[in-house]
């Protein structure tokens, strides 16, 4: 890691520079706006990236973890928030359909705990290393994943 200095209130430019320097090739910066950085990452380095975001870039809060079902692959989207600048970092990670495993960040932020459980029960994405990956909102005996596009509602066809 090149720059290991802790930045308490990183601006958008500082985030972009730090990510480009430390995660060359694994992380692509898609676009930036005022107080927003949109980034996509590959599956293997997501844990290291989240670690980095927490400890170096001071993204203290995991606002949300959710899943999206693009029919040929699944995707996990993280939103991280910094208290001092109001910046939000959005990370999207693609996950293949036949191997829906991804490292869990519940040990880095406990706030992501229930979000990951919900994504698991609605999409079927398995978070490795999660302390208790069980169904949360739907009944315990459901065996399907409701939010996938293969599960059709009555009005859809």
């Amino acid at each position: 890691m090149a720059s290991q200095n802790f930045i308490k209130a990183p601006s958008v430019e500082e985030i972009v520079t730090a990510l480009n320097a430390d995660f060359e090739g694994k992380v692509t910066i898609k676009r930036t706006k005022a107080r927003r950085v949109f980034v996509s990452c590959d599956r293997e380095s997501i844990y290291a990236l989240c670690r980095y975001a927490r400890s170096i870039l001071n993204f203290e809060q995991a606002s949300s973890v959710c899943g999206v079902d693009w029919v040929d692959h699944l995707q996990v989207v993280y939103h991280l928030s910094n208290y001092f600048t109001g910046t939000v970092l959005e990370i999207t990670v693609d996950v293949p359909n036949d191997d829906p495993h991804i490292a869990s960040v519940a040990l880095i932020w406990e706030g992501a705990d229930w979000h990951e459980r919900e994504t698991y029960e609605l999409f079927g994405i398995i978070f490795d290393g999660h302390p208790k990956l069980e169904r949360l909102l739907t009944p315990q005996n459901y065996e399907f994943f409701p939010f996938r596009k293969s599960y059709k509602l009555r009005g859809q066809n």
């Binding site: 809060q61 606002s63 208290y83 600048t85 109001g86 406990e110 706030g111």
Partner: peptide
């Protein structure tokens, strides 16, 4: 408070000075 992801008055009662209306 930051670790558990609390927000709103629950978080501001613990000393975190963050409000979406002012900071974002």
């Amino acid at each position: 408070a930051a670790n558990y992801g609390l927000t709103g008055p629950t978080m501001r009662g613990c000393g975190v000075d963050f409000d979406v209306r002012r900071d974002d």
